[in-house]
Write a protein that binds this DNA or RNA. Structure first.
Lengths: 300, 300
DNA sequence: ATAATAGTGTCTTTCAGACAGTATAGT
DNA sequence: ACTATACTGTCTGAAAGACACTATTAT
């Protein structure tokens, strides 16, 4: 039985510092798609998927690359904290953001128990205005790709264990490094379980290789059933550009005619054209905001 | 520039208590599907979706119903904490669990800043062994349903705002109550935004009505592209039972022949039969563990 | 025999995949 | 004229949706 008469009374005596509390950070994975340079005046530029990382200028994990983030303030919501940190560290603003996953393993940070609530964020390359923030952290974009490099299947008496090794590659003009991630699917009895763990990740801080890998998976999945891709596009875009963005994220080629049929409802034609290179100009399209209505259910 | 020579040196001087930290809880939403009683000996029992709630015996929110959960220990992983709390409070064990969402609004708990990392959990009705834990908390199952009751669309100059009101109903033999949840989809300019908020929720503690609503949405979505449903089934089940579970969760009727074709690859026939009532006996099936292989990508 | 469920066959429409074809700017 | 891209038409086969039909048990 409670010693207090009412809730007001209870709250007056409540002392939050009685117990030890973990630290809570928010970390934001920012993706964008940009054009790679091209020499042939006729050829269209290739698209590349990029992720934003900052070089840690302090312990712990000093010198390693991390996704932007930091400790939350006691008086700000989680998403607000994510946006604030992003702004402080990288000057990126007005951006699509959604919660990704919360990482809280006991040993993931050497300082103390740190729970990291991570966010996935998308922006088009035009809105980029990345400079290092004034806290002496260096922000850079990295080309990112994740490929399945090995697969093992072990059959057990009841079910099986599937191990998938992914190579996560981050590179730009100045740096290049790899991480290896192991995804284990255990199917024994009733509940299949998925575990993601880092095999090696020398240049990425903490468990951030996992976050990038998982964010990429989420992005790929959502590409197929939401309108999330338009956060990576300019206001006006050609259908070929849109297709290229799909292709670089899904890491596979798509057939033009089929692609156009599939995304037809998501876009609206404009009367503008993109005339630039040595070939037929292409019509510019915009996102069709009414598309979201009927497809609202699949947004989670 | 850092004042420390190396990471070891840094960690020796690190004092986590320098800053104020939020509290962190884990809360787990547990769903199951059970048979409702039937009087007609021929008729199959109807299925109902249930959620597990506990009645809070202490401040804050004393007397209200809440999802089982509690504060994490400093030396246990998040999922482990969720499982421990579930076991302590409700005696539920060996259960499917996945992370749902992390709630961290500043004012969501009157005591202090509380970040709640929530989990979604599924179990079949056979595995139920719910008793109130020894900390004098009462656990009960509630039939749960969420229905769209009103929809408003406002057209703006650039885009629109869609407001959807859902009625969340919880009821069992002893209690019945409703919450109203407002889902607002704002589509202006580039980034569509979704906000979920509680309009009214008198008998549910904190923002738990939101969690139930969101968990139900997640369950509905995953039903369509994963094998998650089998966590709600016994080892052996009839195809009609499986269909009933789909129907009660999706809240719509399905055509038998089409349903069977759709789930054909996910199950394997056995030579057992369920002969019980005044009609043709039906074959028992099991989950086909090989199904997961090819469909691994869509698991997130 | 009857009531209720178990289980199958097939028609139609829709959609994904593959591929071949025509159109048009800039040099 | 040539090159690279823009854009469309159509065939095929698979899957989704709708519906009708047959089969089998306990009472």
């Amino acid at each position: 039985m409670s010693q207090f008469q009412n809730e007001e009374e209870f709250l007056k005596h409540y002392d939050a510092s009685k117990y030890e509390h973990p630290s809570v950070t928010v970390d934001t994975l920012v993706f964008t798609v940009v054009d790679r340079e091209t020499k042939n005046y006729r050829k269209l530029p290739e698209k590349v998927l990029r992720v934003l990382l900052i070089n840690r200028k302090d312990y712990p994990e000093k010198g390693k690359w991390a996704i932007p983030g930091g400790f939350i303030n006691m008086d700000e919501d989680l998403e607000a904290a994510a946006l604030r940190e992003l702004k402080e560290e990288t000057n990126v603003d007005d951006i699509y953001i959604e919660q990704l996953y919360t990482y809280g393993d006991v040993k993931r940070d050497p300082r103390t128990r740190v729970i990291s609530c991570t966010y996935l964020s998308l922006t088009n390359s035009n809105s980029l205005d990345v400079k290092a923030g004034d806290d002496a952290k260096e922000a850079q974009w990295f080309d990112v790709s994740s490929k399945l490099i090995e697969e093992q299947k072990m059959i057990l008496k009841k079910g099986y264990v599937l191990k998938k090794y992914y190579r996560l590659t981050l590179q730009n003009d100045y740096h290049e490094f790899n991480s290896t991630i192991l995804v284990t699917i255990t199917q024994t009895g009733k509940h299949p379980r998925i575990k993601r763990e880092i095999v090696s990740s020398d240049e990425l801080a903490f468990d951030h290789a996992l976050i990038i890998q998982y964010g990429l998976e989420r992005l790929r999945n959502k590409l197929e059933y939401t309108d999330i891709v338009f956060n990576l596009m300019e206001d006006y875009f050609t259908l070929t550009e849109l297709q290229q963005v799909y292709e670089v994220i899904l890491d596979k080629e798509l057939l033009k005619a089929n692609f156009r049929r599939k995304i037809a409802d998501m876009v609206v034609e404009t009367n503008k054209y993109k005339k630039d290179a040595g070939h037929r100009p292409s019509k510019l399209y915009r996102f069709n905001p009414n598309w979201a209505d009927e497809h609202f259910e699949r947004r989670n």
